[in-house]
Amino acid sequence: MNRVFPTGTAPHLPAPPTVAGVMGQVLLALIPGIATYTWFFGPGVLVQILLASGFALVFEALALRWRGRPLQPFISDGSAVVTAVLFALCIPPLAPWWVAAIGMAFAIGLAKHLYGGLGQNPFNPAMVGYVVALICIPAAMTQWLAPREIAELVPGLAATLQAIFTGALPEPLTVDAVTRATPLDSLKTGVEAGRFVIEIRQSPIFGDFGGRGWEWIANAYALGGLWLVYRRIITWHVPVAVIGSVMALSLPAWLLDPGANPEPLQHVFSGGLVLGAFFIATDPVSGCASPRGRLIFGAGVGIITLVIRRWGGYPDGVAFGVLLMNMAAPLIDRYTRPRVYGR
């Protein structure tokens, strides 16, 4: 008559969210940005995403195997793919295939699994991969395409594949013909050469705020990012702090010396700032955990980005900003814990 039941610990309700679900939503949120990117610069970015994802999954599987971890739950958690997609969005669309290989080897092998795998990495893996590639193979990392509106020709799929896998575009195209300096690059070299910002901005590569084409991609990233905020995958703190700090710092500089300093919105819509603000600096594993900590973390990313853009050796500084703030994150977390109830 008496019945025996298996027991379990409270709470008994199933927890609906999963890691794969979180990662999947991040990927979904990137779709508008990727689509816009493809529209302006051709299918190169899609090829890079596939390449990087493939390499990421292979390295993930190898690393899991070497570490003696179960393959299934971790390979399907989506985290390696998110790393790969973010990396692919940071490299030039026509970068040779081995850029993705090198980047993913460092991102997944070094930055992620050497530190203990999912959830243990102190540094953002995608940014580690990107920075390693940027420092070691700068030539391949600076071949940026011109956007559709001003390009003589946007390479199609076949040309793109040929460029990525052989390093040469089909005749009569040359790499020089399809690539242009990026807005941030020409801004930096122009200002260093003593030209005024307003003068530099006459170049057709500039749009209303940032780079032509790039600013629309940034809008699309922001759209996806806002959806992530709405879905409670990320909080508003990091994006607001990153963009807010960039605006707050660049506004007085621009007001004081508009000749040498671009306007705040140009900073926001240039380079990887919006992508970084919504998708990279918000990485929970390597970022801060508390709301106040996230504000400080985001502000740090914004400030370092601006400093590197203005005085550093690289045209953009989002990746360095994120990595440097990753180092500071545990300390920030320690001093920004929320006040516990009743204390």
Binding site: H12, P14, G117, Q120, P284, G287
Partner: peptide, 24 residues
């Protein structure tokens, strides 16, 4: 309506737990 025995994954520090914690 019972929590299935699914594999536990490592914490990804998403912070959702501290967002819902009534004790902060």
């Amino acid at each position: 309506n019972v929590r299935p025995t699914q594999p536990e994954m490592p914490c990804i520090r998403c912070g959702e737990c501290s967002r819902v914690c009534p004790a902060r």
